[in-house]
């Protein structure tokens, strides 16, 4: 039997945070959900328990305490809020996997606020030098978690990071969420992954994909 891992989800009441929480509650994980608006986290937990009474999920009052208990930390907050989160969890996230899901979009969704030679994931790694930052779940919309198979095809979810073991662990997390994990490369590949989602958002708005769209690599 594999040992149950504890995952702290910071920003769990947001669109992405709640979608990730719901889909991971099916796995062999204990989930600690935290967010600024604690009441909204309780609603997410009630929703999870309603569809899966056996789910091991509870709310946590602060991100530092939750991250101290956690084996894996998911930062499901907007890019602009990551600095503040990093400062709170830095000490307790030492040596732990921290999943960066953020896309550093500008206000009009037509570009990224990060420079071309960096990415949201690499910036988070700079703030958490002793953590294992892994880029994941940034190329999937919140609605995809409820429907990870679109048009009969399982949506691919790309992962990038520098630590082999951490990439393996996050691949398992991505599989539990229902996506097909593809390790794309080291953490600098996050630049491409974040731009891929920028493109998908722009195409989604242009062709009205209704926020249910994803990437699939076709190959022989």
């Amino acid at each position: 039997m594999s040992t149950k891992k504890t995952i702290a989800i910071i920003g769990a009441s947001g669109n992405m945070g709640s979608a990730i929480s719901k889909s991971l509650s099916k796995g062999n994980y204990r989930l600690l959900l935290c967010s600024d608006g604690q009441g909204k986290v309780e609603a997410v937990i009630a929703d999870i328990k309603n569809s899966n009474p056996a789910a091991d999920v509870e709310s946590a009052e602060c991100s530092a305490q939750a991250s101290w208990e956690a084996d894996i930390i998911i930062s499901a907050v907007p890019y602009a809020a990551e600095k503040e989160v990093a400062a709170k969890i830095k000490e307790v996230a030492n040596q732990k996997i921290v999943i960066s899901i953020a896309n550093p979009l500008n206000e009009t969704y037509n570009g990224l606020v990060t420079a071309a030679d960096t990415s949201a994931a690499e910036e988070l790694q700079r703030l958490l030098p002793n953590s294992k930052v892994i880029k994941a779940f940034n190329t999937t919309f919140a609605a995809d978690f409820a429907t990870p198979v679109i048009d009969g095809k399982q949506v691919d979810a790309f992962i990038a990071g520098d630590d082999e073991e951490a990439l393996q662990t996050v691949s398992e997390v991505v599989s539990v969420a229902g996506f097909s994990p593809i390790v794309a490369g080291d953490l600098s590949v996050s630049r491409t992954l974040e731009n891929m989602q920028l493109l998908l958002i722009q195409l989604g708005m242009k062709y009205n994909y209704n926020w249910l769209a994803g990437w699939k690599i076709l190959h022989n």
């Binding site: 039997m1 040992t3 084996d71 030492n94 732990k96």
Partner: peptide, 21 residues
Amino acid sequence: LKQYLTPKKLRKKQYLLQDDD
């Protein structure tokens, strides 16, 4: 040395390790 350490809280009855893992 601190850079290499993983701080971790475990609650009563929770597992650090289960056999076969």
